[in-house]
Amino acid sequence: MFPSFFGPSDRPLFGIYHPPADHAPADRAVLLCNPFGQEAVRGHRIFRVLATRLVRERIPVLRFDYHGTGDSPGSDEDGDLAGWTGDVRVALQELVARSGVSRVVCVGVRLGAALALRGAGGLPETMRLVLWDPVVDGASYLEQLRHKHVEALESTFSVADPAWRASLANDPAAFTSEAIGFALSERLRGQMRELSPQLLRAPDGADIHVLAHPSDARVGEWIASPSLRAARSSHWPIDEPFDWTASQRPGSPIVPAPALSRLMATISG
């Protein structure tokens, strides 16, 4: 496991490269694309476990932090979908250079799914996109984050302030500039609002595997939409819903086994 900063000197990224076991020759490499904010904190352990299992299968892995997230430079306020999409491309090139493998499976989780699709979808090195619980509708995602933020406040304080719920219900602008500990700039919110099932298009011939809970109506709408028509897509239902914004507590299940198994099968198959 090799942590490093990589990429252009004016926008370096923090990443951890996992070489394959025994440095064996590999037929594919895997790029892991983080979700946003608290969901990325929640996803860290999952990605580490996934990477560990993949290298045992002799598949090299790179996981990384977008600009303004994790250990990468930049602040929360620098969040920018266009910039993060570029970060995916930089990371993919880094992975190809480090592993010597030119066929890459991009795994994107939540907002990272949209970034992986946009950033890596059309690149010749991308052999497959595996999108887990993808965020395909930015407006509803932002609304979900508002609710999750208030839920987080209510659960962390011993006594909830009723004004939080009232603001949430009556003021559409309340709890929009931050979400569960992370800033949401006006620019980022604007970019997220433009994300929709109609506009999140897959490139011609892309090999796309979507892992999502069957009740996720937005994902269902996206899969049925013309946006995926040009792609070869498969939908894998994950029956166990996963709360991406929940706090991690010692002893609680932090890596959902069914999803991990499906990810392994989808990446390796």
Binding site: R45, G181, F182, P250
Partner: peptide, 18 residues
């Protein structure tokens, strides 16, 4: 803090370090 990795809850450690 707990099982959160070195960046800390809500990236607090990074923000404090900088």
């Amino acid at each position: 803090a707990g099982v959160v990795h070195r960046i800390g809850p809500h990236r607090f450690n990074v923000k404090l370090a900088r």
